[in-house]
């Protein structure tokens, strides 16, 4: 497994909000090491048995924390992310609709501070058997040796479910986020799966927009020896229309599904035409 392992001890930023409190409970039910929450002005209260602090600094005085998951609303997300980056090694930003100028600053600051950012606009990360920092349903995951990385949410669940149903499981599953600018990208995650002893094969789920998949294809060609199966959503999408995700818009030739599929196949990646083919392809490859 990668990034989220038994040494990850997490604080929830924005824990008193509707999303924050609900998903904290879900994460705890999945035995994730959530040790505290923050909500400025609500320090000293509790949610269940979990203590709430006014700031990460305050929480760190009482607990050993190295990661954060952020549920703070978009207008305040940059502030929350900077607070996390200044003091922690990992920040998972669930929040959607963060202005892209804010995200660029978050990503650059994280690079300087050597903090790993997942998201924004991500379902999060799950390492079955260890825990999850995210909002994904857990029953579709199973411990195993397939690493999954994806730009989308529910499509990831679709694929993870099929991998599980076919009798395999996941080492770690990461949604990198649907926005135009995100922290970890495909190449970063694939490299970590390559280096991870518990991962035998990888699934990469892309979609129209940008050229992250094309860059990943080149990267795979050069650096990845383990088998990779890919799926690209949006083959029939019209150009120029934003398709749900802010990042999913065809602008020019490199952002079409056809271009991405071609680039991946040229790099020796097996590209599934349908999500349901993915599990079978992996069985053949490992």
């Amino acid at each position: 497994m990668i990034i989220l392992d038994k040494n990850t001890r997490c604080v929830v930023q924005g824990i008193t909000g509707k999303q924050g409190s609900f998903h904290t409970e879900q994460m705890l039910n999945y035995h994730t090491k959530i040790v505290a929450g923050t909500s400025p002005g609500k320090g000293g209260q509790n949610i269940g048995e979990l203590p709430i602090y006014n700031s990460i600094e305050e929480a760190k005085e009482e607990h050993d924390i190295n990661a954060s998951i952020i549920f703070v609303p978009a207008p305040f997300a940059k502030d929350a992310a900077f607070e996390a980056i200044s003091q922690l090694d990992l920040a998972v930003i669930i929040t959607e609709h963060i202005p892209v100028h804010d995200t660029m600053e978050i990503v650059e600051y994280a690079k300087r501070e050597k903090t790993t950012i997942i998201g924004p606009n991500t379902p999060g990360i799950i390492s079955p058997g260890v825990g999850k920092l995210g909002i994904m349903p857990t029953h579709i995951f199973n411990e195993g040796n397939v690493g999954i990385v994806s730009r989308s949410g529910t499509l990831t669940y679709e694929v993870a479910n099929q991998v599980t149903d076919s009798g395999m499981g996941q080492s770690t599953c990461i949604g990198i986020g649907g926005d135009p600018v995100v922290g970890l990208d495909f190449a970063d995650v694939l490299q970590r799966f390559e280096d991870d002893d518990n991962t035998a094969a990888m699934v990469m789920i892309g979609e129209i927009g940008g050229n992250a998949e094309e860059i990943a294809a080149k990267f795979i060609n050069k650096n990845i020896t383990k088998p990779v199966v890919a799926y690209i959503a949006g083959v029939t999408a019209p150009p120029g229309k934003r398709m749900g995700h802010a990042g999913a818009i065809i602008e020019g030739n490199s952002s079409t599904a056809a271009s991405k599929i071609e680039a991946l196949e040229d790099s020796g990646v097996y590209v599934a035409e349908r999500p349901s083919e993915i599990a079978d392809l992996i069985w053949e490859l490992i």
Partner: peptide, 9 residues
């Protein structure tokens, strides 16, 4: 412009 892959203007 916003360069998505460089994550910078």
């Amino acid at each position: 412009v916003l360069d998505r892959s460089a994550k910078k203007p």
